[in-house]
Design a protein around this nucleic acid. Structure first.
Lengths: 199, 199
DNA sequence: CATGGCATGTAATCTGTTACATGATTAT
DNA sequence: ATAATCATGTAACAGATTACATGCCATG
């Protein structure tokens, strides 16, 4: 249940309308929590109903811009949530799944996908590096906004990791070149399976 | 739409019943794609209805074990999916969200959470290291199952990244020690916001 | 007054989560 | 017999995705 809190945080930073929020969820916030405008409007209505935010007084009609502001109860809820016990979500990465599938049905077409992903991650890394250069220049390194910098570094670090991992994996997939089906059904099963059970 | 393919892959590795699959989704496969038994049973029924798998002939009654096997159409579907164009999912990490919220409402209670996460990631890393030692011993390094090793390395790399990142972030949060509310509302907004817009 | 873009919203569907229900099997 | 556990399943709901609908407003 993070979306309402993401919205509250965004509104605390700056009161906004639904569409403005949508835009911000395409950029900075969306780098680690994405949301569509439908999710956002729905959640705004709930948050208002629950008394955590309220719309600034404006003639309410259908197609008209509606600006929201966080109420004290909303701010308190965010503060509570920051300290809440909340386990890290298990990794959910379809590409790793597909890699595993490839060990069974063959790697045909996989290299192309890996290359494509590599390019996308390089793009994203470049984007983050641009933001870092702009917002956290070396001259005022030990500044106030250390937390913000750490958040950005998470993005930088993750992209860097994927780039390295994809590069290594791609090399092996291209070297192996085995486009066809896997060697034998069931052979690959033990490797990850038995290890997991042992651990 | 990865769950059906995850199940097909698991069944290709080894025909199983619903509960067996559930167990495997708690270990090896679950390391990068988790699922509960309800999801699995629902999906098994759909896959059978769609002719991608079939239950091995056994007296079908309610509480009785039902073993499934992948049909040729199912294998073909997996092969198709391995090569499919599929963009990486945007990162969705509540902890980063909470960090950002903390820049606005204060870091009270945050260090505790970071420490807890650090411990959990260290545990997970140890688990992966155990599996690596067991399944990929250095003596038969350049072996057959390179792909499987790469999959495991993704887990190792991600956990390692989070441990390093959490350590660095925690140090700053503890040093800053500002438990109270943020400096001023709106001040923190520009940092990530403007950077994102510029990029 | 028509067009296009801005802004909010509805509806349908799918995926994921939580809680509970029920039949079968095994051990005591 | 009965309790514990194995195994499958139902129901209700929350969250996320996709497609579409509607009203406002500026411009030509």
């Amino acid at each position: 249940m993070s979306l309402p809190h993401a919205i509250l945080t965004a509104l605390l930073e700056k009161p906004s309308s639904g569409l403005e929020l949508t835009r911000r969820f395409d950029r900075s916030i969306g780098f680690f929590w994405s949301a569509t405008h439908q999710q956002i409007y729905r959640e705004l209505n709930r948050l208002e109903r629950d008394g955590l935010i309220h719309a600034l007084p404006q003639p309410p009609s259908r197609g008209r811009r509606k600006e929201y502001e966080v109420l004290p109860a909303g701010r308190a809820e965010v503060a509570r949530w920051v300290a809440e016990d909340q386990d890290p979500r298990p990794v959910r990465e379809p590409l790793l799944l597909r890699l595993r599938a490839a060990t069974v049905v063959g790697t045909a077409g996989l290299a192309t996908e890996l290359r494509r992903h590599l390019a996308l991650h390089r793009e994203q890394l470049a984007l983050y590096e641009g933001i870092e250069a702009h917002d956290f220049p070396p001259e005022r390194a030990a500044g106030e906004n250390r937390l913000q910098h750490h958040i950005l570094r998470a993005g930088l670090g993750l992209e860097t990791f994927w780039i390295e991992w994809l590069t290594a994996t791609l090399a092996d997939v291209e070297a192996g070149g085995s486009d066809g089906a896997a060697r034998g059904p069931g052979e690959a099963a033990g490797v990850q399976g038995s290890g997991g059970e042992a651990g």
